[in-house]
Nucleic acid binder design. Sequence first.
DNA 1: GGCATCATTTACCAAATGGTAAAAAGTGCA
DNA 2: TGCACTTTTTACCATTTGGTAAATGATGCC
Lengths: 188, 188
Amino acid sequence: MEELIEYILQFGNLNKQQIELVISKGQILQLKKEDYFSEAGKIPKQVGFIVEGVIRGCYYNNKGEEITRCFISENSLVCDYVNFEANASSSEYLQAVTDCSLIVFSKKNWEELSHIIVGWDNIKNKMVQLCMYQKSRKGPVISQDATTRYLEFLENYPSLTNRVPLSYIASYLGVTQQSLSRIRKNIR
Amino acid sequence: MEELIEYILQFGNLNKQQIELVISKGQILQLKKEDYFSEAGKIPKQVGFIVEGVIRGCYYNNKGEEITRCFISENSLVCDYVNFEANASSSEYLQAVTDCSLIVFSKKNWEELSHIIVGWDNIKNKMVQLCMYQKSRKGPVISQDATTRYLEFLENYPSLTNRVPLSYIASYLGVTQQSLSRIRKNIR
DNA sequence: GGCATCATTTACCAAATGGTAAAAAGTGCA
DNA sequence: TGCACTTTTTACCATTTGGTAAATGATGCC
């Protein structure tokens, strides 16, 4: 739980008792590679914090191709938050890319924290907003060519290169797997 | 102001007195085409709501090319919100594409609303989060080809086609202006 | 170990897009 | 109206990327 607490304290202060309250509401969740954390068409039921592992957001486009939209790794929140809040069904899958250890909060527990910790809403919203902001900033830039997008991916996600299948990275970067393979060859 | 109130009430209820408080904190701002609402390298000073006009988010990439990252039009919030909250300098410009009428809230007034209206924070955060969420969903999809991206742009932003220069749309879609011109020709 | 299965690389050609340049169309102003 | 200026279109060819297919490399299971 230490990682989670350290993460939270970036966004505001909590005393020991409040930290205990947060911990008491969280539960450990282990996901096996390819398990879903949440699914398209279903209402997201929990907020997660990744202690170990990689999760991706993905969906199927109208050609039936599977597209990876984002990667989330250690020490980050994982949740389709807007739909979690609105009790609306999600349009994408959140799927474990590797075996994962998470700390998760049910909707009930997550909401209770707002009632029992003064200032929790403030921390919570800063966390969620930073999360959304970073996703939009660390993603591939559409105006760059594929090689540049791959090089920036390596910079932004150095720890992912060897634990994520090439096909996921390819659809994330908007190129075919074959093109990405060729790009990697040309870089060396 | 009616548009703003209607927009806000989507996210939660306010009584007449509270609505008056919101109105009392907002100010009218007129922007001329190409004026900046906020600038890269500067700390965003206000939150805006677009009553009339179009604003774009843009920046200069490392080749010095000007890249449009998003379009925001009537009945939407406009703000680099994370940096506004954090008093951090922005990495992009928010620039009027057409003459604009806005209702703006200074940082001081925006924060005061949190103190004087119970439940304002809740409304505010839902607004901001939906705003960020939509930006990530309405943007061009990197795994689609340029023609598809343009067609989806037309669907997502039908009102922008004739009031935004082609060059802005081109960089937004990640193609050169010449390519976009060719694409438009082939669609007809 | 050997086999089946899946992931990645390579090759080939077709199609899409970029870069440069020039022409055409549109806009504002004297 | 006519001129200067900006925006958009068009054309040409080089380069990048996609689509299909097959070969190679990895991985897990019996």
